[in-house]
């Protein structure tokens, strides 16, 4: 299955968002996630199922004005 993570396509065997993040190497990083434009909280990542073509955004703290 292919998912789009931060604009790049990835092949993944992960069925849920938490597993996908682990597989992608985010580990313990402090990040926030969205799936197809909707916020997914840390607690619900393990229960959110992924489908082919899903768009995942993984955001981290950054400088801002």
């Amino acid at each position: 299955m292919k998912i789009l993570v931060n604009g790049d396509w990835h092949d993944t065997g992960a069925r849920d968002l938490a597993s996908a993040l682990q597989e992608l190497g985010y580990g313990e990083a402090v990040v926030a996630t969205a799936l197809n434009g909707e916020f997914v909280s840390t607690d619900s990542r393990a229960t959110v199922r992924l489908a082919d073509g899903d768009r995942v955004e993984v955001l981290a703290p950054m400088q801002g004005g």
């Binding site: 931060n6 992608l24 190497g25 985010y26 990083a29 990040v31 993984v58 955001l59 703290p61 950054m62």
Partner: peptide, 18 residues
């Protein structure tokens, strides 16, 4: 003020800033 941006799995720029 702070913001959020995409972070690739290999980088930890956001973690350092935070």
């Amino acid at each position: 003020t702070v913001s959020l941006r995409r972070e690739a799995s290999g980088e930890r720029a956001g973690q350092g800033f935070w």
